[in-house]
Design a protein around this nucleic acid. Structure first.
Lengths: 232, 232
DNA sequence: CTCGCGTCAACTGTCAACAGATTTGACGGT
DNA sequence: ACCGTCAAATCTGTTGACAGTTGACGCGAG
């Protein structure tokens, strides 16, 4: 990507810091910061983003902030209504269903790609994570299960060799955070969930793309049904 | 989505026109216009978008134009480099491959959803389009084949009942236009392509979701291989 | 002729101010 | 007490201007 540090040989942390400063415009910084506020729930769905207040809070003018919100609108995190303002997007149950189906499709594709480029090292790491989840599932400790589960899914998506796919998948996962679901994983589902993980793992190890795609698709699809059943 | 017309019951075309006028800000208009310029090839990949020139051309100031380009950046149509400007995105072969895989995943999901909600009316329309393509394939008229083919794919995607999926699918199809491929459909592939269409049609008619998903996925995946084979 | 340096025009990043729309709240009539 | 009307306040849409950066051109030294 024509990185300025490419020509310098080894890159010192200091230099890379400078590089970050140079690359980051106010718009970029604001966008990431607002996205963080939304994903952490500090800006709740449905709330209006006041341009003046927020730009004052960050010490900038309204220009860069407006550019940042336009970008977030295209990413689906906020909604802009002319002459009324930008609102943190609120997802209906129907919206969540639609996004789950997209996520399932993308995750299935990722599973297929991973199956076709599997190696021992990756298989070892995935197996380790699933084993770890099995142990935790016995105790029913949801808080401990969640990060491992996340790492397992992330490892699959980032190992598929398709960076665009990985980025888009992440975008939809983020968007799902706008759905009114904190603590959506019910402890009873841990063992079931990890059983599906084992099935995915076997499919990945077999190298059968069709099989892996179906297993991964089904996993997300079942997660969708679990969430929906819990939210009605 | 809290649309203003929701409460009004039926929506007249006139009302929806008014609604459009009220909703359109300069930013929105500029965004759609620039997107059109890019997709029609009037703004070629790699070219820089001069803020002053373009805003003068549309008779606006640079503010709305910058907001529009930020939105297009998030959609993946342009690339913004700090202090240098925004450039119409140029897709490498690797980028195109990645997007084709995403498109295949989404189209497969659409096929599954359609199969699960199939009705006679839709089946009739789809069958008509495939028959039409068969006739045209005999003559080898690529220019006549293309719009029917497009209509066939669009009908499937818009009939799947998932509006978000349809919008995202369209976004990736648009993005593929940035790839250096005019006239990518080689006439020899028409019959092969429509053979695949018939397979998809049968799968849809059977109501078997797994089967339909695989058939639709494979169709795009094979199209990917054909395009790549022609571009190396 | 080539390379390096300084200068300059062009362009982007950011800001402050103006114009128009929307919301708020008070007021008077019913 | 309730409702419609109207005006002030608040906020967004848009513009023009200023500051900093980048890339190009030209000039002189080697």
């Amino acid at each position: 990507m024509n990185h300025p540090t490419d020509a310098a040989g080894t890159v010192s942390p200091f230099l890379s810091d400078l590089d970050i400063v140079k690359t980051a415009s106010l718009t970029t910084v604001l966008e990431k910061e607002i996205e963080r506020l939304i994903l952490t729930g500090e800006l709740e769905p449905g709330i209006r983003i006041n341009e003046i207040h927020l730009s004052n809070r960050f010490g900038t003018s309204r220009g860069p902030l407006r550019e940042a919100t336009r970008s977030l609108e295209a990413k689906g995190l906020v909604e802009v209504i002319r002459n009324r303002g930008v609102f943190v997007r609120r997802l209906s149950v129907e919206d969540a269903i639609e996004i789950y189906d997209i996520r399932a499709a993308l995750f299935g594709q990722a599973g297929r790609l991973v199956a076709e480029r599997m190696d021992d090292k990756l298989l070892g790491e995935l197996t380790r994570l699933v084993n770890r989840m099995d142990e935790i599932a016995e105790t029913g400790d949801v808080d401990a299960y969640y990060p491992i589960n996340l790492a397992f899914h992330n490892l699959i998506v980032t190992s598929c060799g398709n960076r665009t796919l990985a980025a888009e998948y992440q975008r939809f996962v983020n968007k799902l955070h706008l759905f009114r679901t904190r603590a959506l994983v019910q402890s009873g589902g841990l063992k079931i969930s990890n059983t599906e993980h084992r099935g995915m793992l076997e499919a990945l190890a077999s190298g059968d793309g069709d099989r892996a795609q179906l297993a991964h698709w089904r996993h997300v699809s079942l997660a969708k049904k679990r969430v929906l059943a819990a939210s009605t």
